[in-house]
């Protein structure tokens, strides 16, 4: 295995991790601050991607459509929070799971009614459609570089938002002790709406950015939602830093496992076992990782709640 290949695979791991981070960041904020399990997070991701695909086709421009889709999804998220989810904050986790599970079913059907059952097209912007040469012998898809760039930028922005701004301070206060924050006069209701809106916008950003790489179709949110949950659980719920570390860990372990485990098994095992075992193990690797992390650190790597 050459150094170049290892480097490329690490880049892939980074990219996949940042992809997951975009989704996990919003989830961990909502989850950590409102103590609310929102399974419908994936539905907002789907909505973001569909709106992006529609707007990109209507305007003919990726760059114009992106902010529009993000704002539109943000508004939808805020409306959803004010009309429905707000009622669930005081309920137990079970009720939240059930209600947002119901929302997934409803969202999937509504999207199908509006856009039809066939997958949507969301093309890569023409400038970014091919690979670029990073090193001799290492060419990398330019669009994936964009994903890496945006992922890092969002991570930095969120870090700044949470640690350096007043809203961020309130968010941290809310996450570590909600009752105390309320008692100190924080307008929790408005804070929650704002946080949920930010979460929805991050969903839309993720959906819009991943649309050119992944199929934009009904139910696209659920597959990736589970991965996002794994990420925030590994990282520690409510912690942006945890979400980033968790996302990168999951991205790396999954990518490296998929890339090298099957080959490794082919080296050491007879082919009939290796063919099944290698990919089989690679596909459960992240769940194994999560079980191991929780075994040693039952609160995740960076527990936010004090």
């Amino acid at each position: 295995m050459s150094g170049i290949l290892l480097l490329e695979q690490s880049l892939n791991g980074l990219q996949f991790g940042l992809m997951l981070f975009l989704l996990a960041a919003g989830l961990t904020l909502v989850f950590g601050i409102m103590d609310m399990i929102n399974l419908a997070h994936g539905s907002l991701y789907m909505l973001g991607a569909y709106l992006m695909a529609t707007l990109a086709q209507a305007t003919g421009s990726f760059l114009v459509a992106l902010p529009l889709a993000i704002v539109a999804t943000g508004i939808l998220g805020v409306l959803l929070e004010m009309s429905l989810l707000r009622k669930l904050y005081q309920r137990d986790h079970l009720a939240q799971v059930l209600a947002t599970f119901a929302l997934i079913l409803i969202a999937n059907e509504v999207v199908r009614m509006i856009w039809g059952a066939q997958p949507m097209m969301l093309a890569t912007p023409a400038v970014l459609s091919g690979p670029v040469d990073l090193l001799p012998g290492l060419s990398y898809p330019s669009y994936r570089l964009l994903v890496i760039g945006v992922g890092l930028a969002v991570a930095a922005l969120l870090y700044w938002l949470v640690t350096r701004t007043r809203t961020g301070m309130l968010v941290r206060a809310g996450a570590s002790n909600r009752e105390m924050a309320t008692a100190m006069g924080v307008n929790i209701k408005r804070l929650f709406t704002i946080v949920f809106g930010i979460g929805a916008m991050l969903c839309a950003l993720a959906g819009a950015l991943l649309g050119p790489l992944l199929a934009v179709q009904v139910g696209m949110g659920e597959e990736i939602l589970i991965l996002a949950f794994v990420v925030i659980v590994i990282g520690g719920i409510g912690s942006i830093r945890g979400a980033l570390v968790g996302a990168l860990l999951v991205g790396m372990v999954d990518t490296i496992g998929r890339a090298f485990l099957p080959a490794l098994f082919r080296e050491f095992l007879p082919p009939q076992y290796a063919a099944g075992l290698g990919p089989g193990l690679a596909s459960i690797l992240i769940y194994l990782l999560m079980a191991l992390v929780l075994f040693w650190k039952p609160q995740g790597l960076f527990p936010a709640r004090g």
Binding site: I226, V233, G280, S283, I284, Y287, L294, F295, P298, G300
Partner: peptide, 21 residues
């Protein structure tokens, strides 16, 4: 060993492992 949401997720993780195997 875990509590709350972590328990939800770790049981899910085990079920997913069994599923993929």
């Amino acid at each position: 060993r875990t509590r709350g949401v972590y328990f939800i997720m770790i049981t899910l993780a085990f079920a997913q492992m069994v599923y993929y195997i």
